[in-house]
Amino acid sequence: MPQHIKRLIGAFAVVIILFLVLQSFLRPTSFGKLGHYRADAIQENKMKALHFAGSDKCTKCHEEMKTDKEVGFHAQLQCEACHGPGLKHAMYADKFKDGELPDSLLLHKPGSRKECAVCHQLNAARVKIVFDTINNSMIKQIDPMKHNLVDKRNFAKLVCIECHNPHQP
């Protein structure tokens, strides 16, 4: 074989070997254990931080709310659906005395027309929806711009929770 062909083959061999060496160094250790991916990535995804605590955690302290809510239309509604994610609150709230909870741990208390309208605004897609198969009850629909307006100029001031108990609407 002529000298230059040997050199060419040598150069290619060097490139290929270098590539294979680099490849084995750069390949993540857990890659390919379960499939064509880093098996460790499953664990990394599982380690993400939680934000919602779940109603069981809420009712541990707020027992009265549970009994309150159980008999009403909002029985199925999770606490955090209205009050927002409360894991931080649930974890740290008992470290403070009543009424001394810092703002960052306080949960939101909704009740405005806008907030309740998210579920109760009149909408053609909503009117026929049965939410409770046992009682066969339908979700109540109102037009928040017209519903129970004492004073038409002042309607914004009439907050839903002034008349309705959100836990037992």
């Binding site: 002529p2 000298q3 230059h4 062909i5 050199r7 060419l8 150069a11």
Partner: peptide, 19 residues
């Protein structure tokens, strides 16, 4: 770029052409 090769005999060039 020529990989320090020096062979430019007609035979080598013919081989280059063929390859």
């Amino acid at each position: 770029f020529s990989l320090w090769s020096t062979d430019i005999s007609p035979k080598a060039v013919a081989l280059d052409n063929k390859l």
